[in-house]
Design a binder for these strands. Structure first.
Lengths: 211, 211, 211, 211
DNA sequence: TATGAATGAGTTTTCATTCAT
DNA sequence: AATGAATGAAAACTCATTCAT
């Protein structure tokens, strides 16, 4: 008659409560983001985790698997962050500002497109599919928020998906800014504000296009 | 006054008027753009040119040298194309549209930031410097055109460099669009128009920011 | 008190009690001695051991590392042999004869100076330092024995280190003797005796130098 | 009717009176001595001469040819220097001192044995033969001088060739001395004197060998 | 006489991956 | 769960050599 859910026997080694697999995944994510897929070797990841290559292979059958999982999990986390911000009552503009700030504060930068290009030759179709779905979901949240604002009349009707894509592309560019140039901004908030303003109001601030 | 009448050494092939070195450079440029720095081997380049690795090394001492030259020359060409368009009498908005169209029509796409990240560990400081300068020049032309429009009162004053950077980032994102999604646009012009409009008019089309 | 009862990982082959690493080191030592540093490739070593290049790299990170270890270990072994002989009660002359014989009987021959010259451009400062120390130790034992004999009055006072160096240089030269010439000696002992005599008594066999 | 030996027409380009072939040979000699056969590339030689590889090949069919010629000519020059010194009226000991000093003053060092070992695999039998002969000649002069001194009763009878070989080996060792150690001698003359003394009088300075 | 172009065969090194314990 | 051993394939780079002018 078992009373507790607590598993019996000595609990498995989980230093700081993080499992080996998670540690590997987390470490790999950071390294992939920093250097790109081909420039990170399984040994690099293993060494940074203080494990051996073989241990990494114990958890991930191939490097492509590790990469796919790393990217998918990352995109899920980002999507969740976006959703959290979008679920508040603030105006869309305010929310976009919050998203932008969170994105730029995170040292990590997901230039998904660049990653895809690099890894394309190494990933299986299934893996590419997985990543594409995660990417879709990630942009999807933003896209729907924009769509809702359009439907509510908050902003004029246009292509909401394109808006979402362009917004993220601008954030990525903001993240990759040359350090020397970055320092010409008085603060991070200042940079973020200018980017969001550019996205929100455009360069011209007028209604009519002369085209 | 010395005349070196007869050229020394074996003459270059010059088939179709294109020298071996140019062929290598051109081929390499395309491959780097398509797959990224680490994924293109010197042998890959050589084979595509129908030469041997050693021939590539005859013209470029290292892979990093080849890459640097490829990117710098590319950015020079792009800068020139931008300058050509900007030197017409058309309005800036029209010019931006032309630039965007030229950029997206070119199969090549330079996601400079992504390349820099990939190659950073492999390039020497000198090489990085060369690329940064070429990049600066490339954006510089656009930046000055925006600045001039601001000074003329054509558009409101804001950060012209950030505008230039964001514009190119949007074009790059447009270029990397998922094919399936790309096909939802009625034409290339349609896609380009929407991107330029978004940049020019912003999402909100209003003057006041609520932040 | 942690007992690592079961050894982790795949166990080494240990055929004939010699570990893979030792086999590689031993093989490499012989090849370096025979052909010199630049003329021995990592693949050469691997093939002679019936392993792959990658296995050699598994144990030695670089060729320079392998070379350094090979030479240092060799010099340590030679030093030990010299010390063993010098620790007997025999007269120094007899001991020198024994050392000379052992040196010449060993098929291996270390022309340390020549090796240093060849490898100098390839070795790191640390590696050169390691080799220099091992070399110093090797000569040191001989030097001290000569010094002791001088202090005891067995031989006249002079520069003991120079004596040690010259002795080894003569042995090396003896080892490298042209085979045709070597055969003009009635026996190995004869050759060794003549060399040691030359070193011990000099060419002139007289006390006064006319210089 | 030609009166003068002076060749007619424009004299061939001989900068500083040294022909291209001689310049190449001379340069190559120095580089081979400094770095050893395998570590010197034909390109290295060419660049140091400010010519192209192809020019070197114009004068020397193969690298082995260049090396053989370089070494043979060098040994001929050394032999001549030895003969010059030995043809004076000075005592053999004095002459050996002069030879030793000349040898050690020359920055170049011919560790012929080491070179032979390195190059053995690359040289043809003919080339090895050529070098062996030059080497024989080089040692031969010294050998004969020693033999003559023995016949004159100046020094006791022993193996003159072995003496010659050992003498040169000691000089080579003296040349390769660690710089730090070299500086412990008050002057070059001091070092040379000690080496020649050791060779001439031996370590023991006594007539009887206890063996 | 001298040279620029081109190459084949190698060299050092890296790395994803497998295997046996 | 984790690891040490071993490898095949490829990458960057080198170099002696040939060829055509």
């Amino acid at each position: 008659m078992q009373r507790t859910q607590r598993t019996l026997g000595r609990p498995r080694k989980e230093q700081d409560g993080i499992s080996t697999k998670d540690l590997i995944l987390h470490t790999a994510t950071g390294m992939f983001l920093e250097k790109g897929y081909p420039s990170v070797s399984m040994d690099d990841v293993a060494q940074k985790c203080d494990f051996t290559k073989a241990t990494v292979y114990y958890y991930y059958k191939t490097k492509a698997d590790l990469f796919t999982d790393a990217m998918v999990q990352l995109m899920i986390r980002i999507k969740q962050r976006i959703i959290d911000i979008l679920s508040t009552n603030a105006s869309l503009e305010t929310q976009l500002f919050q998203i932008a700030k969170a994105h730029i504060q995170a040292t990590v930068d997901i230039d998904i497109n660049a990653f895809m290009k690099e890894a394309k030759t190494s990933l299986s179709d299934d893996q590419l599919q997985l990543m594409k779905e995660a990417e879709d979901n990630m942009y999807g949240a933003l896209e729907q928020a924009i769509k809702k604002a359009m439907d509510k009349g908050e902003i004029p009707q246009s292509n909401p998906r394109l808006g979402a894509l362009m917004f993220v592309s601008m954030l990525t560019a903001g993240n990759n800014l040359d350090n020397a140039y970055k320092e010409t901004f008085s603060s991070l908030d200042d940079l973020v504000t200018q980017i969001v303003n550019l996205f929100w109001n455009g360069l011209a601030n007028e209604n009519q296009s002369s085209l």
